[in-house]
Design a protein around this nucleic acid. Structure first.
Length: 895
RNA sequence: AGGGAGUUAGCUCAGUUGGUAGAGCGCCACCCUUACAAGGUGGAUGUCGCAGGUUCGACCCCUGUACUCCCUACCA
């Protein structure tokens, strides 16, 4: 056996191990298998993106689930993929071209799209390489890109089918418009930000009078598109003006004063200007009152010819000029600072302008109905459950989805305009003639679909749908619906909801059973990570520095359901230390297994319980507890509980006690005892590596390779559970557990006295253990060497209390057992520290006594509380009182 | 504006049917004890946001209140 380095170096093992796994095909799932299926589809990251910490968290959870299920006998399939990310990718490439002072319009559509494909081919693998660094055990053969042929045909089929059902339609509507991107964006892509603006009060001259109507607005430039003023029909101030006209200043257009209950009489002046083509509320009023819709903007969000003298200006410039001109005309009543929220394009950051344009929409209400039902009925479960409400609330208020984008990168809409009859022919394949008039003059729609359109189909388009080839059918049969969708709450509406709707519509079944929603990764102060704040952290850098396992464990150990994740490098370092601890413990164990031959007959060779030391029996009991906890925690999606349970078992039980207890046996015990311990140690270390593997796959695989007891690979070995391990765990014993508890407590009590009195570890103590229970005496004498070794004791007497003069005394109580730890201090220390220690203990005990006696003298407590609660308190009270008495006696002996 | 979540040790957070508050990290002290100083041993630290109520008893249940965060919508 090779010797392991005394520090764990992730760089030495990670890439080597990953390659080995991948080459061996361990990540591959079978389309047909006798094993039960377990599947997860990765939320596809942007094809040209980088892995950020949010991905790292998201992937770590999925990989944990996949590896755990794979080891638990499932046909585990994790399907990776990347998204073409329409706007994001097109923007990136446009920016690159801009450096060469080329615009996409100069290149033309075809060449520009080629340029993006080049970009994709160059960077498309980067994120996959980064995922490998993290240890993602995806079935790479199934990797899918949203513009792959299969996905594209799914997109067309869905579009055509929904169009036939009239669920997709084209219409002239007011949409959110991003000027810089020159495209419509969906409601969800609008981010509202609070900005300091101004409220402008503008006078509109009432025709035929010298009166004015004052209107307040935050967007004065939109007055150029006003086609009405509106008041409340019951408003006594303005009732008489309804039906009359005013003149819009600056452009001198006459518009009518209309009435609508939409207007809030109490707000502002009670008069609202109506700009149907540039405001969503005004749009509705414009429709009801059949007003004229005047568009004053170009696609670049600059003022157009309808804005007269303001044509060509940017919105912000126009606003300035309009205000100046109004001032000059003395029509600006006042301008006051006003804080309000303004929609910004989540991609370009520009202010979103409501813009009238022809777009394609998907009707959502009918699709939402069944999608609501499956969540209400629990067929799909959100974890944590709070997201159910958010989801249902949105579904209840769902609006039609604008699915067309004026971009070049994406799935081009499968509709062809007829030059003759101007109707659309919608078809999965390129049509040759117009289905309405038979004309040959067909031209495909320029627009592409919103990226989320193809994402919505992801759960089945990645499995080959709608292809009817055997392979594709089998895949869907085995893996659809998937078991988990793991994602952040930021895309519940963008993606999760739409996947549910599409899954139900086209597969007649939900796309997944459980939506595990994790929080967003923030910095250690809880701020969003962003480039501008300079607080973003590159996960690859963390992996380089601390190893993938440490990064993964730091996520899993602190993942609290639904809460945002505050990332701290310090914590990664701490878990790097844990990895090192695991490494070194393994190193120690393996060094003592060099001469060990694993019995070919396996556990049957395990000596009978009587031959196992009490330490062995105890650690197996602890192992059983741990396996039980880990299983329950993983089943309950309490990943941090599982991680913590393992951490504590390994560090606080196995390393701190078991290894220390057994050192003497390993170095100089009798051969049969040593063999028994080796056998148990080998088994426990084997279980540790397997239990830990889904959390930190690299280090565990590396250790596993050096184990004397092993199968082909850790990644494919069985995940330990109490059930699977019952043969081994049967060697544990509750009696041993109790025994070790007593021994540990006695050792800790001695260490405490030593520490508090600052007695150097170099000084070996002489102690007495005062015990009058024969059973306990027996336990202590059996474990004499463990106590003397670990507490650094020279002479140890067990039996009577004896002379207590100038002795430190502490009573250890475990269940019924009582042990008085007595350490003569004369000559070792001045007694000040010990007196302080005793006084401190007395103080605490007296507090307990007064609390307990108060409780117990309360008749109502005794009458109402559970009998065992009362009894336990009585015992506690008696014990505390006894201890106070004996400590007070001890105090006297020091004076 | 409507909806949701939170407030427990210096920090990050547990606390599963109400019964004398926990973990990790950090901190302090002492130790290079032959797996590990990325380590060992010991220690300190909380009016459980605030105010009421229910109860023999409340971090836990109820009411109110303050603050923080998130989501949805957005007022001209």
């Amino acid at each position: 056996m090779k010797t392991l380095a005394d520090r764990y170096n992730p760089q030495d093992v990670e890439s080597k191990i990953y390659k080995w796994w991948e080459d061996a095909g361990y990540f591959k799932a079978q389309d047909q298998s006798t094993k039960p299926p377990f599947s997860i589809i990765l939320p596809p990251p942007n094809v040209t993106g980088f892995l950020h910490l949010g991905h790292a968290l998201d992937h770590t959870i999925q990989d944990l689930l996949i590896r755990w299920k794979r080891m638990s006998g499932y046909n585990a399939m994790w399907l990776p993929g990347t998204d073409h990310a329409g706007i994001a990718t097109q923007t990136v490439v446009e920016k690159e071209l801009k450096k060469k002072t080329i615009t996409r319009h100069q290149l033309g559509r075809e060449k520009f799209v080629d340029e993006i494909w080049n970009w994709k081919n160059e960077y498309g693998d980067r994120i996959y390489r980064q995922m490998r660094r993290l240890g993602d055990s995806c079935d790479w053969d199934r990797a899918t890109f949203t513009l792959d042929d299969g996905v594209s045909s799914a997109v067309r089929k869905v579009f055509v089918t929904l169009h036939k059902k009239n669920s997709i339609y084209k219409g002239l509507r007011l949409v959110n418009w991003s000027g810089p991107l020159e495209t419509a964006i969906s409601d969800l892509e609008v981010e509202y930000q609070t900005v300091k603006g101004a409220m402008y009060h503008i006078n509109y001259p009432v025709d035929g009078t010298n009166d004015f109507l004052t209107v307040a607005t935050t967007r004065p430039e939109t007055m150029l598109g006003d086609t009405a003023l509106c008041v409340h029909p019951e408003d006594e101030r303005y009732k008489h003006l309804i039906g009359k006209t005013v003149t819009v200043p600056l452009i001198n257009r006459q518009i009518t004063i209309i009435a609508d209950t939409y207007v809030d009489m109490a707000f502002g002046s009670g008069v609202v200007k109506i700009t149907p083509a540039h405001d969503f509320n005004d749009y509705k009023i414009g429709k009801t009152h059949q007003l004229e819709f005047i568009n004053i903007l170009t696609k670049k969000a600059e003022l157009n010819e309808n804005a007269g003298p303001y044509a060509g200006l940017k919105v912000s410039e126009a606003r300035k000029k309009v205000v100046e001109d109004l001032k000059a005309l003395n029509l600006l009543v006042k301008e006051e600072p006003h804080v309000h929220s303004v929609g910004h394009c989540s991609r370009s950051g520009a202010v979103v302008e409501p813009f009238l344009s022809e777009q394609w929409f998907m009707k959502m209400q009918d699709l939402a109905l069944p999608a609501k039902r499956v969540v209400e009925s629990g067929t799909i479960r959100f974890e944590p459950e709070v997201w159910t409400k958010t989801y249902l609330h949105w579904m209840n208020n769902i609006e039609d989805w604008c699915i067309s984008r004026q971009l070049w990168w994406g799935h081009r809409i499968p509709a062809w305009n007829c030059g003759a009859c101007h109707q659309n022919t919608v078809s999965e394949t390129t049509p040759t003639t117009c289905e309405h008039c038979g004309s040959l003059e067909l031209k495909q729609e320029e627009d592409v679909l919103d990226t989320w359109f193809s994402s919505a189909l992801w759960a089945f388009s990645t499995m080959g749908w709608p292809s009817e080839e055997t392979h594709s059918v089998e895949t869907q049969k085995t893996f659809y619906p998937t078991h988990y969708l793991v994602t952040g709450h930021d895309i519940i509406f963008f993606w999760v909801a739409r996947m549910i709707m599409m899954g139900l519509e086209f597969k007649k079944d939900v796309p997944f059973r459980t939506v595990y929603v994790h929080g967003l990764v923030r910095d250690s102060q809880g701020r969003k990570m962003s480039k501008s704040l300079g607080n973003s952290i590159d996960p690859i850098e963390m992996i380089d520095k601390y190893g993938a396992d440490a990064l993964r464990f730091s996520f899993l150990a602190h993942l609290f359901s639904g809460k945002d994740f505050k990332f701290s490098e310090q914590r990664v370092e701490n878990y790097r230390n844990f990895m090192n601890k695991v490494w070194n413990a393994s190193r120690f164990v393996l060094s003592h297994l060099e001469s060990f031959q694993a019995p070919p007959e396996g556990l049957k060779a395990m000596p009978n319980k009587v031959h196992l030391s009490v330490f062995d029996q105890w650690i197996l009991t602890k192992l059983a507890e741990t396996e039980k906890e880990v299983h329950a925690a993983l089943e309950g999606e309490r990943f941090s509980d599982a991680a913590t349970s393992l951490y504590q078992f390994i560090w606080n039980q196995f390393c701190d006690w078991y290894i220390e207890f057994t050192k003497p046996i390993m170095s100089s015990g009798p051969a049969n005892e040593k063999y028994a311990t080796q056998l148990v140690m080998a088994h426990v270390l084997n279980r540790i590596t397997r239990l830990l593997h889904p959390f930190c796959p690299f280090i565990t695989e590396e250790i596993y390779a050096n184990l004397p007891l092993k199968n082909e690979a850790c990644i494919t070995d069985q995940y330990p559970t109490v059930e699977n391990d019952h043969e081994l765990l049967a060697f544990g014993s509750a009696q041993a557990a109790l025994e070790i508890d007593i021994v540990k407590e006695v050792i800790t009590a001695i260490r405490n006295i030593r520490g508090e009195n600052r007695i150097s570890p170099a000084v070996k103590l002489n102690i007495r253990l005062g015990v009058n229970q024969a059973e306990v005496q027996k336990i202590l004498s059996h474990n004499r060497s463990a106590i003397t070794n670990l507490a650094r004791i020279d002479q140890m007497e067990i039996g009577e209390d004896g002379n207590l003069v100038k002795c430190a005394v502490t009573t250890v109580a475990i269940g019924e057992a009582r042990v008085k730890v007595i350490i003569p201090l004369d000559g070792l220390v001045d007694f000040n520290e010990e007196i302080k220690r005793i006084e401190k203990t007395i103080e605490k005990l007296e507090k307990d006594v007064s609390l307990l006696s108060g409780k117990l003298s309360n008749e109502k407590f005794v009458a109402n509380a559970d009998a065992d609660v009362v009894a336990a308190d009585r015992v506690l009270l008696r014990q505390s009182q006894e201890q106070v008495v004996s400590l007070k006696e001890a105090l006297v002996r020091f004076k």
